[in-house]
Simulated assay, not measured.
Amino acid sequence: MGTIAVVDYGMGNLRSVAKALEHVAPKGASVRITDRADDITGAERVVFPGQGAARDCMRAIDAHGLREPLLEAARSRPFFGMCMGLQVLLAHSEENGGTDCLGLFPGNVRAFPRDLHDGHGHRLKIPHMGWNTVHRTRAHPLWNGIAETACFYFVHGYHAAPEEPDVVAGTTDYGRRFCSVLADANLFACQFHPEKSSRDGLRLLKNFVEWSP
């Protein structure tokens, strides 16, 4: 197996993502944290984590010259986006007064309303932080070995709202139902943090490194 590139654009703690991938990767695989376009272009698989604000993320991507390598990888090889690495795949984010993103999928990234309530009428805190269930909307190889009731760890104040329902592979409820997983061809992206999601998060990453779309 070849290289798994973990994209480093200067935002986020990538060491925990890399360590989780190293733990589940087959023998002979190389996990490399990199901000080099050549490394991303030459990698067999690409993992695109992220955190922070959309505007800062897009500025950092462009400053590192990673826009085209990311788009090329997302269209051609096994590609895993995480958290902000899901949101910036859409066309536009409401964050920071409005930010244009990578535009791989039509749709927007929207803020959670500040007056969200649960089913008992209790006001929900924003950002959405903690464990929550992902409801699968369709089958996917990355769900193999993971129970339908599995929970994953979230930290976010904005959520993806893609225009095309066919790319939604999972939803989550937090005062409203939102898209928490996108999947299309060789791409899988989730709003939650697999590296912080215990056994099921590791299984998801293991499924990714063994996936042959």
Rank of each mutant, 00 (worst) to 15 (best):
W131Y: 01
Q51L: 06
R36L: 05
A91V: 13
F192H: 06
G145Y: 09
G119W: 01
S197Q: 02
Q191L: 08
T133I: 14
A18M: 10
L142W: 04
G50M: 08
E195P: 05
A183G: 09
D38E: 01
R203V: 05
E94N: 15
V88S: 10
D35S: 15
F112S: 07
P213I: 08
G28Q: 07
N13L: 00
G145E: 01
L205V: 12
R177E: 10
G121S: 09
P49M: 00
A139M: 08
G65E: 15
M1C: 00
V17L: 02
W131T: 07
D35F: 06
L204M: 13
E72Q: 15
F178I: 03
A74K: 10
R59G: 04
G98F: 14
V134R: 06
R203F: 01
V31L: 03
L66C: 03
N96E: 15
A183S: 12
A189T: 07
H128P: 06
F80R: 12
G65F: 15
L124T: 12
D118R: 05
G97R: 11
V47N: 04
H92R: 15
V31A: 04
H122N: 06
W131S: 01
L66F: 14
R75I: 14
V7M: 07
S16G: 07
A91L: 08
P78S: 04
F105P: 10
S16M: 03
L102W: 11
N144P: 03
R77L: 06
V134M: 00
N186G: 10
R123C: 08
Q87M: 12
R67W: 09
T3Y: 06
R36V: 11
A189H: 10
F188M: 13
A37D: 11
E72S: 15
R75D: 11
E163D: 14
P194G: 10
C190I: 09
V168E: 05
P113C: 06
G10D: 02
A53D: 01
L102H: 14
C190T: 11
G130E: 04
S198L: 10
G12T: 02
A161W: 10
P49I: 02
A111V: 11
G107R: 04
V7L: 09
V24E: 02
C190Y: 00
V47W: 13
A160N: 09
K27F: 07
G201L: 12
H159K: 11
L90E: 10
T137C: 08
A161S: 00
T171E: 12
F79N: 01
Y158N: 14
V6Q: 04
H193G: 07
W131G: 00
L182E: 01
D35C: 03
T34L: 03
G157K: 09
Y158R: 14
V155F: 13
M11N: 05
Q191H: 11
V155P: 01
N108G: 12
A53T: 12
A25T: 06
K196T: 05
P113M: 05
G98H: 15
A5C: 13
N186E: 11
A29H: 06
G130I: 10
V31Y: 05
R77K: 03
G12K: 02
K206S: 04
I126R: 09
L102T: 14
F152Y: 07
S30N: 01
F154K: 12
K27N: 14
R15W: 14
E68L: 08
A150C: 03
H140D: 08
N186I: 11
S76L: 01
R67H: 00
Y9P: 09
D184S: 04
G175I: 01
G2T: 13
P78R: 00
G65N: 13
V24F: 06
